[in-house]
């Protein structure tokens, strides 16, 4: 299945695009997507400790099992206000 990946804030600059797509097998977790993203964009991999992950509009961790139609967002710590 193809999982769209959205990059927000300065992660968009580090990825060189606002959105990418990763192909993963059925039953794959967020971690599978992260590994593919970090292989393609090592500068994002360097920030993995502070990276926030969402699937749809909810925060999720690397072990979250993806389903067809899911979209992953990766972004740095938030700063509203």
């Amino acid at each position: 299945m193809n999982i769209p990946v959205h990059f927000w804030s300065y992660f968009r600059d580090l990825a060189g695009a606002a959105q990418g797509e990763v192909q993963v097998p059925e039953g794959a977790t967020v971690e599978t997507v992260l590994n593919a993203v970090y292989a393609a964009h090592p500068r994002l991999g360097a920030l993995r400790q502070s990276t926030l992950i969402a699937v749809g509009v909810e925060y999720q961790g690397p072990s979250f099992v993806l389903r067809p139609g899911d979209e992953v967002s990766l972004f740095p710590p938030v700063q509203g206000g």
Partner: peptide, 11 residues
Amino acid sequence: SMKQVVPIWKH
């Protein structure tokens, strides 16, 4: 709490 979880960023 907003500053912890709401995805808004400053530039």
